[in-house]
Amino acid sequence: MSELYNAKEAFLKYLDSIRGYSPLTIRSYNDAIDEMIRHAEIEIHNGDILLNLMPLRLKIASLKAKTIAAKLSAIRSFIKYLRDNGTSVELRGDESIKIPKTLPKPITHEQISHALQYAEPQAALAITLLYTMGLRISELTHLRLQDMGEGWSRVRGKGSKERDIPIIESISAMVLAYQRTNPSREYIFEAKGEKLSENSLRYTIIKAFAKVGLKVTPHQLRHTYATELLNNGARIADVSELLGHASMSTTQIYTKLGNALKMDHYRQSHPLCHPHEDSK
C-alpha cells in the first residue's frame, strides 16, 4: 500500500499549498484516508485501483452521520485527486449519507474591504467580482471579456445554464483598468494567453485574505453576496435567479442565516438581553 501512502502525502501537500486548508482540516483528511487504507478492501493491478468502502463503512457505522459523511467526503476528495492525476480508481460501497444542511458562513463587508486594501490587483479584482456578482469560482474562471456588457454580465453556470447579472459602473471600470496592465485575449483572467485555472484563482484569493489574518474561501464571498442582498430587502426569487439556483428551495438556507444574524443582533442590542448591565 506504499503507493497509496505516497499519494496521500502528495494530496495533503496539495490541500495545504494550493487549497489553503487549515492544519486541523488536513489532519482530519489524513486520518480519514488512513482509516480507508486500513479497513477498506483495496486491490492494485498495474497501477489501477479497485476500492470497496463497505468494510470501512461497517467499521465506522456507530459514529454520528455527520462524522461518517465528513470521512467519506475526505476520501472522495482523495479519489478525485488520484483520478485527476491519471490514476484509474474503481469505487464501490460509496452510498451517500444524509445529514442536515448547515448554514453557510458569510464574512462581513468590513473584512472584505480590509483585505482589498492590501490585495494585489488580480486578487482585488477576483474578490470584488465574486462579492458583487455572487459567482462560483468556476464561473469566475470562465468569465470572458465579451460577457461584460453595459450594466450587465452574462454568466455560464452549472449545466451550461446562462444568466445575466447586474454590473455596477465602478466594477466595469475596475475590469478595464486591470486589462490595461494585464491584457488578455478572451478571458478576464489569463496567464501567457491561457485561461487561469480554478486552483490558481482560489489560491490567489485565499492568500489575499491570509495577508490580513483571515481564512476565507471564494465560496464564502458568494454566501456573503446572497446574505447581504436578502438582509437588505431583496426578493428571494430575484436572489435565487442571480445565484443561478435550479430551485428556490436552495436559496432558502440564506433566509435562515439572515434570521440567525438578526437574532444575534437583537441579543447584542436590546437592553433586556443584558440584565446585569442595568444593575451597575
Rank of each mutant, 00 (worst) to 15 (best):
H39E: 15
H39Y: 15
A40F: 03
A40L: 09
E41V: 02
I42W: 04
I42C: 14
I42D: 12
I42G: 12
E43D: 09
I44T: 07
I44K: 12
I44P: 01
H45P: 00
H45D: 11
H45W: 00
N46S: 13
N46H: 10
N46P: 00
G47Y: 02
G47V: 04
G47D: 06
G47S: 07
D48F: 04
D48S: 15
D48V: 02
D48T: 04
I49A: 11
I49H: 07
I49R: 09
L50K: 12
L50G: 10
L51I: 05
N52R: 11
N52E: 06
N52M: 08
L53T: 03
M54R: 15
M54Y: 05
M54G: 02
P55G: 05
P55S: 06
L56F: 05
L56K: 04
L56A: 10
L56N: 06
R57G: 07
L58T: 04
L58W: 03
L58H: 08
K59Q: 13
K59D: 06
I60K: 09
I60V: 13
I60A: 12
A61M: 11
A61F: 01
A61G: 03
S62W: 01
S62M: 10
L63R: 10
K64M: 05
K64D: 08
K64P: 00
A65Q: 06
A65C: 05
K66H: 02
T67R: 05
I68S: 11
I68D: 10
A69H: 05
A69F: 02
A69E: 14
A70W: 02
A70Y: 04
A70L: 15
K71E: 11
K71G: 09
K71W: 02
L72A: 08
L72R: 01
L72H: 03
S73D: 09
S73G: 14
S73H: 04
S73I: 02
S73T: 01
A74Q: 06
A74V: 04
A74D: 07
A74G: 14
I75V: 13
I75C: 12
I75S: 12
R76D: 14
S77C: 14
S77P: 00
S77D: 12
F78R: 07
I79S: 10
K80F: 06
K80L: 15
K80P: 00
Y81F: 15
Y81Q: 03
Y81K: 05
L82I: 08
L82Y: 02
L82K: 03
L82M: 15
R83A: 12
R83T: 09
R83G: 08
D84A: 13
D84S: 11
D84W: 00
N85Q: 07
G86W: 02
G86T: 05
G86F: 03
G86Q: 10
T87D: 07
T87M: 14
T87P: 03
S88K: 15
S88D: 09
S88Q: 14
E90P: 00
L91F: 02
L91T: 01
